[in-house]
């Protein structure tokens, strides 16, 4: 009887942690997996091989809180003529003809955006490189999030650069 209970307890313990691992895997897949995009746009090609500067497309990064995604017209300024045979570029043409924006999925979003004020502009003006937070985007085909966006991460960098760590700097 006792032996059976012990065996059941051992199986129970492992099952519990296998279940916990399943949950972690599910959570990662649901919340943290690099998002699929409506068009298989490759940053590795555009920012890497073609060496376009980040702000060529994300033009508001140094002017506004949001870096912004490019308007379809920005894409079309090249893709009216370039690579028009590619099925992915044809998807872009469809959005252009229907006069719709491309519904890109966010890669970086602050889950607590309600409580945190973040401005790209200030960070670009403080001479941070885009890669400091976004990683080597020029080497990513599909972009993935490389930083945790945790408060500890923000504060570590603020401290190391002697930026303000006053609560009201970020939390309004």
């Amino acid at each position: 009887m006792v032996r059976r209970l012990i065996i059941a307890a051992v199986i129970g313990l492992f099952t519990l942690f296998v279940a916990a691992t399943v949950l972690m895997a599910y959570r990662w897949h649901a919340a943290h997996r690099p998002p699929e995009q409506p068009i298989a746009f490759s940053h590795r090609l555009h920012a890497g091989k073609l060496n376009l500067q980040c702000q060529f497309c994300h033009e508001y990064a140094d002017k506004s809180p949001r870096a912004g995604v490019p308007a379809v017209s920005t894409c079309m300024s090249c893709h009216k003529a370039v690579a028009t045979n590619s099925p992915e570029v044809q998807k872009l043409h469809e959005y252009w003809e229907n006069e719709e924006p491309v519904p890109w999925n966010r890669v970086y979003s602050l889950r607590v955006r309600k409580y945190v004020v973040f401005a790209h502009k200030r960070h670009v003006k403080a001479d941070l490189d885009c890669t400091d937070c976004h990683g080597e985007v020029r080497l990513m085909d599909r972009v993935r999030r490389v930083s945790s966006l945790n408060m500890g991460w923000c504060v570590t960098c603020h401290r190391s650069r002697s930026a303000s760590t006053d609560c009201l700097t970020c939390h309004k």
Partner: peptide, 12 residues
């Protein structure tokens, strides 16, 4: 995660 789960089951 999947490979880790296999490890756990083998340990079990």
């Amino acid at each position: 995660y999947v490979v880790w789960m296999i490890a756990l089951l083998v340990f079990m």
